[in-house]
Amino acid sequence: MTTYYVLVFTVLTFFFGSVIYALHWSVRTGQFSRFQEGAESIFDDEEPIGRLNDCFPDLEPPELPLRKRA
């Protein structure tokens, strides 16, 4: 039974430790600030905001935005 306890608690400590470390690291490196910049980080000049980036081969992609936001 001791083997189980040692095994389970070692594994738990390692994984919970890594979660705490990840949280600490992300706060320290500013991952929880500059949200807008984070959300826009997947776009660039060639795959920009405001353009449809995928389409059926036989269709012409429409102009975006489809509807102006109020």
Binding site: Q36, A39, E40, I42, E47, G50, R51, D54
Partner: peptide
Amino acid sequence: PKVIGRPI
């Protein structure tokens, strides 16, 4: 977001 060209 990538396909429709709008951030989350």
